[in-house]
Computed example of a mutant assay.
Amino acid sequence: MKIAFVGKGGSGKTTLASLFLRHLAAESPAPALLALDADINQHLAVALGADEDHVHPALGAHLPLIKEHLRGDNPRIRSTEEMLKTTPPGRGSRLVRVDEDNPVYDACVRTVDGVRLAVTGPFAESDLGVSCYHSKVGAVELLLNHMVDGPGEYCVVDMTAGADSFASGLFTRFDVTFLVCEPTVRSVGVYKQYRDYAADFGVRIAVVGNKISDAEDLEFLREHVGEDLLTCVGRSQHVRAAERGDVRPIGLLEPHNRAALAGMRTLVDAVEKDWPRYQRQAEEFHTRYARAWANAKAGRDLAEQIDPDYLPGPVPVG
């Protein structure tokens, strides 16, 4: 399963993503698990327990390696320079699993408190005025386009805040999108905006209420979110301790909050993969992206990269 965490800035989406990841990692046996930090504020490693001065290799800095590996010998992709962040796989492409040995993972994935993590890399001073953050997130989109995750495999992505996720087709790359929502007007507003944008693409949204203090908070979310409200996480001393740098074992999380994480996994495990839709949406956004600007740069129609007779799926890959 591919899982996204989204929400208003400050809603606690990174905290919830880290708790969910640590909840999965604590299972026995632990499932195949990969975390990707695609937020402009790169805090997932610290939320998982890394030191504040932790340095993680960036996916964005290894984009040529990622393209070369995923391109394989796909004859429709003439060069890595013509490979876009939206380029879908086709015959000859090299697919990846959640947990395997490959050059991309060797270069970019490191383990933090039992969780295998890759990060896009921060928005640097050298990027100011000449680049946008979504160019860095392209490495995540490419990986997800080429990832064939099977049963019991989880790829969890901490997305950038708010509606910025809609700047590319990345928001369609998930089986479940957990939208973290505080009991506030602003947070509910982001939920409604995300829900409305995603409605035309069949994006499965489940709202996780966060920072719930009392019955009034819960009733507020039920009133404004309705059936999309899956579960709620209450205010937590365990989380407060982590925010002070004291990351405690996930087994010490309050039982009602641990139950919320278990409910989230239950939802994820009940979802059926829809590989035809997944590939169809990849091709749609690739065509849009190519027509918007990439064709002019390449001097040809990069929609030709689409292999019309190809469908990925949970099959063993070399």
Rank of each mutant, 00 (worst) to 15 (best):
L230C: 03
V208N: 11
A262D: 14
G92R: 08
E68C: 03
D101F: 12
P89V: 01
V109L: 09
I77E: 13
F20V: 04
K13T: 13
M1I: 13
P183L: 01
G92F: 09
V268T: 06
D175Y: 07
N257L: 01
G152R: 02
A161V: 13
V98T: 05
D113C: 10
F220L: 12
L142M: 15
H256P: 09
L302T: 15
V148W: 10
A199S: 15
L302K: 08
V140W: 02
L33R: 11
V190C: 09
R265N: 11
A47P: 10
V233P: 04
H238F: 14
R76W: 05
A45G: 15
W275R: 04
E82K: 11
E52D: 04
R244V: 06
A45T: 15
H238P: 03
A58E: 14
L117E: 01
K192N: 13
N41L: 04
R110D: 14
A260I: 03
D51G: 15
R94D: 02
S168A: 12
A118M: 14
E254A: 02
A25Y: 00
A118G: 09
I205W: 07
V247R: 10
R116H: 06
Y154S: 03
D149W: 01
P75R: 04
V55A: 11
A107W: 05
A241I: 15
K192L: 13
G318E: 15
L70V: 04
V225P: 03
Y310F: 05
A206W: 00
N257K: 00
D127Y: 00
T231D: 01
A282Y: 09
A303Q: 12
I212M: 02
E223Q: 04
S187A: 15
L302F: 09
F285I: 00
D99V: 03
R110V: 15
P103M: 04
H54I: 14
G152P: 01
I66P: 06
V317W: 04
L95A: 09
V176W: 07
F178Y: 15
R91N: 00
L24F: 03
L36R: 05
Y197A: 05
A260D: 02
N210A: 03
D158N: 05
E153M: 00
E52L: 01
L21S: 02
L170C: 01
D51F: 02
H62F: 11
R288V: 15
T172A: 02
Q193E: 14
L252G: 04
Y197E: 07
Y289F: 14
P122M: 07
I306Y: 08
T266H: 01
A241C: 13
A124T: 14
